[in-house]
């Protein structure tokens, strides 16, 4: 049976891994390569890396980081943040990414989803949707790293993204992100009931039960989190074990003997 996926999200601000609370970034945790090595506790099913820098000044550095990461990442790697052209998607794929997440540019020009999925295939195009309740308590899609409100309703937008060729939806609640009270289950449910492509839930995990809720109540196909994985050892493995014990069909790591060093030596990455 197809398994539910556990996906750590590595949030990078000017090349540093940061914690994120309602899209405000503090606490530099370290560099991304260490983070990926850390996640090579071999329990994660995929990795997402997002560039949330406020400017594109350090963009070349971000590309270098992706090339370095992909050498150590033997699960699918999704890259997002600031992506607005076919050329840049191509560049990320050449650097070893498997999928890209598109957000602001998809709203600005929905046809970009169509263009990108025609060229690279739907499986490569994740549409990332950031959602926040506005002043009149209505769910609205926000763009530009959560700074700009649009008139889009998240469910309508998700449906449109699917129609245009998106392969997956990465769904983030800005209000819940970093608050550790669990996912916005109502939002997740609204979206999963209305699209037939996989939905990755993100934002708000404070304990492992929150993953179970997103899958059982929200009907999410995959669950993602960032901050919670930073401070505890073997955290992804423990999360997997919790999910498995809760009766969720997940992949448990099996350790095959490989005659090579577990931590191979690579050339200098940066």
């Amino acid at each position: 049976m197809l398994k539910h996926r556990l996906i750590p999200n590595i949030i990078l601000n000017n090349g540093n891994v940061v914690q994120s609370v309602q899209f405000k970034h503090t606490n530099v945790i370290g560099n991304a390569v260490t983070a990926v090595d850390f996640f090579n506790s071999w329990a994660v099913d995929e990795i997402i890396v997002l560039d949330v820098s406020r400017t594109k000044d350090q963009r070349q550095n971000f590309h270098k980081i992706i090339s370095g990461l992909s050498k150590r990442c033997f699960v699918p790697l999704t890259v997002g943040g600031w992506i607005s052209t076919v050329d840049e998607i191509n560049q990320f794929l050449k650097e070893g990414a498997d999928k890209v997440a598109i957000n602001t540019q998809a709203v600005a020009n929905p046809n970009f989803i169509k263009e990108a999925s025609n060229i690279f295939g739907s499986q490569c195009i994740v549409v990332s949707i950031d959602v926040k309740k506005n002043n009149s308590k209505k769910y609205k899609v926000f763009v530009n790293r959560g700074t700009e409100e649009t008139q889009l309703d998240p469910v309508d937008w998700a449906k449109q993204a699917e129609k245009l060729g998106a392969g997956e939806i990465l769904l983030t609640s800005i209000d819940y992100e970093g608050m550790r009270n669990g996912y916005d289950l109502e939002l997740i449910k609204n979206v999963t009931q209305n699209v037939s492509i996989p939905v990755i839930a993100f934002g708000g995990v404070g304990n492992w039960q929150h993953f179970v809720d997103a899958i059982n109540i929200g009907k999410a196909d995959a669950v993602s989190a960032a901050n919670i994985f930073h401070y505890t050892e073997h955290s992804t493995y423990n999360a997997k074990e919790f999910l498995s014990n809760a009766g969720i069909n997940v992949r448990m790591p099996v350790f095959y003997k490989l005659p090579t060093p577990r931590r191979p030596k690579y050339d200098e990455i940066y």
Binding site: K71, F74, L77, G96, A97, T260
Partner: peptide, 15 residues
């Protein structure tokens, strides 16, 4: 057709 780099990376890891 798609990302050959990850196949390259995997074989490189296997020396």
């Amino acid at each position: 057709m798609g990302n050959v780099r990850s196949v390259y990376n995997a074989f490189t890891l296997l020396e």
